[in-house]
Design a protein around this nucleic acid. Sequence first.
DNA 1: ATGCATCGCGCG
DNA 2: AAAGCGCGCGATGCAT
Length: 631
Amino acid sequence: MKFDLNHLVTHDWETFYSTDYSLRAKKYNTSAYIRDPQFLEHCCAIKIGTKKTKCYTRSDAIKALQDIDWSNYDLLAHNNHFDGAIDAWHHGIIPRRYFCTLAQTRGLHSNMSGAALAKIAEFYGVGKKSKTYLAPTKGLRKLSPEIMRGLMDGCIIDTDLCFEIFKKQIEVFPEKEIELIDLNIRLFTQPVLALDTNRAQIALKYEEQERLRSIAYSRVDEKTLISNQKFVNALADLGVQAPTKISKYNGEITYALSESDLEFIELLDHENLSVVRLVQGRLAAKSTIIETRAARMIQAGENGQRLPVLLNYYGAATGRFSGGNKLNFQNLPRVDFDDKGNVVPMSGELRKSIIAPPGHVIVVCDSSQIEARTLNWLAGNSEKLDAFRHKRDIYSELASEIYGRQINKKTDPNERFVGKVGELGLGYGMGAPKFQTTLAIGAMGPAVQLPMALCKKAVNTYRRVNPQVPALWKLAEGILKDMCFSRRGSYMCLEWDETDVWFPNGMGLHYPGLRAKHTGDKLSGFEYTKNGAKKHIYGGLLVENIVQGLARIIVTDQMLAVQAVYNTWKLRKEEIARIASMSHDEIISVIPERLAQKALELNLKCMRVPPDWAPTLPLDAEGGFAKEYSK
DNA sequence: ATGCATCGCGCG
DNA sequence: AAAGCGCGCGATGCAT
């Protein structure tokens, strides 16, 4: 990417921290730390363009930064969510564009464990970070001249490293992804979502009450419910042997005591009511996460403050964003339904306590079955693409094949649901046993018990009806073989070399140290090194990674297109038209009430335009708007 | 106290 | 030949 270094400001703030008040402390996340009354800047190193880096103490630094005409300057830091938020929230500085070497490093080296400045500097051969200078400032609000000098020297070194790393990375970084990093950082530094504090507090109280009630009914104390061994003993006291399973983490035998363990859940139907209540108590006692995050949300929204959304750019190796700031906005519980289709009381309340600011609404749009569509496009499954194009009910169609009779959305919802799980899950090689448990756990909707024979039939049916998909797995295995032999190649919008599969936007999947694994003389898959650990990979899994990555590019490019149009709208003072968050296949915007319908139509239109590298990919989207964040 | 691995569960 | 996957946070349990 071409870039003018003369309009770049590189900077790095050093701030007060102590044992109790730090980013590590449980009470604080990045936003709470920066907003806390204790927050205090020590100094800031600033590099304007290519001029020599200078470090200033607090008030001089603020003045130096505020003297810059930010409509013409870009702002760079290593982790600009942090430094940029200090500038925006405390000093009223909003730059033309945000750049971030932490985000860029995640994008270029998603398999490098950690993206600490020291490590990247070494990787790029641009020098070493001095690590020692931070230690003596802990707990000190006022620094001696000597300590301040040490801090400032180190701060200059870090800023220079950040600048040098940036110069290397900007050469190879795709322009659109640079734009996306800017959008991503603004979700945090210019927050637009509000909180219905009252509603969040009621949700928090309710969760707490329900948990305590279940614990009381269980007749044992909380510690017994939470600890595996104590709980197993309590079960044994009632004459019940705890179920076990093979750990998926290390292959060893472990207790099966979770909501996703069928044998455990079956104890809810036990003839002894004490056993039932003990199990109910366990499930309730274990789920305090809703309360913890409600508390964080309330903290973030106190005094009417907007909710900063921190999503890690390129958090997943596939490019997807991931949650940050100790408050993951991408996995907030949704409204839940029971077996009879009734809303579970108070479910999804925390999500619904997120609201638009006065005079605005939240517009939420979903890319329909983006991964299933991308998978079938990549596989060249034209029949299925036609079905998507004509909005046919593909879930019912697969279910009809599985059950050997016409399945109808209205009259056979459960059978259709089997088709849905099949269509969304079987495309990456899932087998019958996994299909059975996926259905039984009910992770994607209602829990369905399907006999193994039917599960096998479902798996075989999917592969028979969509032969292009297993063929794509085979093709992907060929890609892995190519990579092992350092053979370059290409397929549709993809290219690959020794260790990377390249996406059409210039970003890539990385499989360092990839090698074939054999049992006897038979190929049994491949392995590579991720964050120092060996990871297994095979054709179906590579297809999954590719499809997830392509789907992410489609949605994030659509985000940029939508925001670009918002930016052309003539808004009144105090009006906001901004993307506020995203969740993989969902774009969330804050829009003035009077423009809600217009924004909804714009979003849907943009989300139905296929990318130029996949003109035959049929996309669709659905959405709506409301005061609350809900669908 | 703090770090690390493991597990469970929320979302996609 | 078969193998769904991608995350983050809170928690326990064990090691240091």
